[in-house]
Amino acid sequence: MVILVLVKPVPDPEKYNEIQIDPQTKRILRQDAAAVLDPASKCALEEALRIKSEVEAASGDARCEVIALSMAPQTNRDKILECLAMGADAGYLLSDPAFGGADTYATSYVLAEGAKAILAAEELDAFDLIIAGNESADGATSHVPVQVAEWLGLPHLARVCELQIQREGAEGQEGAGGTPVIAATKKTEEMLLTFRCEEPALVAVTRDINKPRHISAMGIVKARKKPLTIWTNDDLKLDEAKIGAAGSPTKAGELMTPDLSRGGRDLTEEDGSAADAAKAILALLRKEGLGA
């Protein structure tokens, strides 16, 4: 089994006050922002690693390879190393100035093409499963996972909070011959919905699906020996019109900072007693359509 995990470096949420936005392009100046692995990406990787250990524990010679993939500037090589240290078997970073300035559409295109290139490089027919974080801590659009699935022609399910790989007809014939089925549960406001789908598919997981493991010193030492590949567009050879800013139909409109300040009004001064103030508050609430 081979699982591809889409991971994204994002500006450190603890340092959001340091983030700069280019007023012209209206994009985050990522070079200056301290990056961390997106928390949802970590959940996606954790889920893949959990499945890996389950698959490998179920039968002695079963192998499950977890591959991490990201599109990001080269300075984020360490984020791929982090994935390897967490337990991924291989990592790929797609990095080229030509990929920069991409919206979700162009990003998902590059990731999908990267995924295809990995299949070719690793001599695989298909990934059995692709897992991504449902939304990143910075952009939070939730577009990329489903767009990648569309580019690759795969079924997809977003907002997944529980994931199982089941073997069809598992009763009595555990594993052998059974077609693996992905059982993915998503939370709606009213209920939990479980979808079942044959491999391969893409699922986008929410942050409540698991608690990612800590990276250990041993994990970091093991990561030294794992393959970490960086591809530029010289490797992928993608049409420049389809990537980066040129390939991005999204155009950012106005940038504005909403005024969230709350002004108070001292009603006791206006009307004297507390009882009068209470009446005045009630009148104001009614005016806003609240209260009977």
Binding site: R77, D78, L81, E82, A85, H214, I215, S216, A217, G219, I220, R224
Partner: peptide, 17 residues
């Protein structure tokens, strides 16, 4: 080194939690 920085952030995350 890059590896030492990663190690530090791993230890720091652990300590924080």
């Amino acid at each position: 080194t890059e590896e030492q920085e990663l190690l530090r952030s791993a230890f720091a995350d652990f300590a924080k939690e």
